[in-house]
């Protein structure tokens, strides 16, 4: 049977205590939120922290404020976010992304912060110890070679968070606290294009909360490609957030942020594609141009589910589908997309 390695468990009561415990533990420490990803990974020895700092009892991580904008504590469970009708109505794209994460039991445990900091994934990494040992380990853990790209000096494990691309698209800001103090940065700046050091979070920092932009006039959506209507991590996702110069779907675009998830080690912001839309209504031509520009950024390798090249092939059509939805065409008809946790429920403008 797979067993957790021996470890010490620390249960701080405050964010300050948690940050101090993390600083004390050094490289041997890790934060434990819902544990839905970390604990199975530990059983397979992908991650082997010797000290776990549990966040469950920490006060101040479960803030939930909704006014013109929203502030969400990193310790909120995904289910708590889904049950917040006002939050979901204000940010329908957020609702869809959260609802698409795994299954209800895992959403009951998994947290916003945990999903934002989700370990990157790879077919050569998310395996049992014996399996990895048999092929002689990989760069991300215990080895010296990247089995996806053997000539590569870097790790290509894939950012598989559903929250990350959405928060980057929204232009959300995250707060990090350490023993030295706190800092705030754009969600986009939290991520680094590297399969191993995929977060800019310092090892002694605790992600405490996320601030979303004002929801009035915001249109946002999230589409996710995977084989089934539940359980699966994204193998490609599209998060899109727009503001138009007017109330109708045919008004010109004022601001657009398109983000691709699960095509690389970080959420990929398609800035050029977004800029292509600004000042134009969401015509089929504009959508096609933006989709093509964004899809060019998708250069996935053969290290997740689906055949090589599949994620790249699907990127353009998925981006176009997201933009049509934000134009007001209704939810996409596609089997997978329509099943992404929101059967039949229109996403609409927000």
């Amino acid at each position: 049977m797979m067993r957790l390695p021996r470890l010490r468990y620390v249960a701080p009561r405050t964010i300050r205590e948690a940050a101090a415990a993390l600083a004390d533990a050094g490289p041997e420490g890790a934060l434990l939120a819902g544990g839905t990803d970390l604990l199975p990974n530990m059983k397979r020895r992908q991650q082997v922290p010797r000290i776990l700092i549990g966040l469950r009892g920490v006060q101040g991580l479960r803030v939930r404020e909704l006014g013109e904008a929203a502030r969400l504590g990193a310790g909120l469970t995904l289910s708590e976010m889904l049950r917040d009708a006002a939050l979901c109505a204000a940010y329908p794209g957020l609702r869809r992304a959260v609802a698409s994460i795994s299954t209800p039991p895992l959403r009951n445990m998994g947290t916003l912060g945990g999903n934002l900091c989700l370990d990157t994934r790879c077919n050569y990494y998310n395996q049992s110890l014996e399996w990895r040992k048999a092929i002689d380990f990989c760069l991300k853990k215990d080895g010296t070679i990247c089995w996806v790209a053997p000539a590569s000096p870097r790790c290509w494990a894939v950012s598989s968070s559903d929250m990350a691309p959405l928060m980057v698209a929204l232009g959300a800001r995250v707060t990090l606290q350490s023993a030295q103090g706190e800092r705030e940065l754009a969600a986009e700046a939290l991520y680094v294009d590297d399969g191993i050091a995929y977060l800019s979070r310092r090892p002694d920092e605790v992600l405490t909360d996320v601030v979303l932009p004002p929801h009035a006039g915001l249109r946002c959506t999230y589409l996710k490609l995977r084989r089934r209507g539940a359980f699966d991590f994204p193998v490609l996702s599209v998060a899109a957030a727009l503001r138009l110069d007017g109330d109708h779907g045919d008004a010109p675009v004022r601001e657009a942020r398109l983000v691709l998830g699960a095509v690389g080690s970080h959420p990929v912001l398609a800035a050029e594609a977004g800029a292509l839309l600004v000042g134009r209504p969401l015509s089929e031509e504009a959508i096609r141009e933006a989709a093509e520009a964004a899809a060019r950024l998708a250069k996935p390798l053969d290290n997740t589910d689906y055949a090589l090249g599949w994620r790249k092939r699907m990127a353009g059509p998925l981006i176009a589908a997201a933009l049509r939805e934000l134009r007001g065409d209704g939810p996409p008809p596609h089997g997978e997309l329509a099943r992404a946790g929101v059967r039949g429920r229109p996403s609409g403008a927000c």
Binding site: M314, P317, L318, H334, G335, E336, L337
Partner: peptide, 9 residues
């Protein structure tokens, strides 16, 4: 069959 994702259901 979805001609966007080629998924059959």
């Amino acid at each position: 069959v979805d001609l966007c994702t080629y998924q059959a259901q």
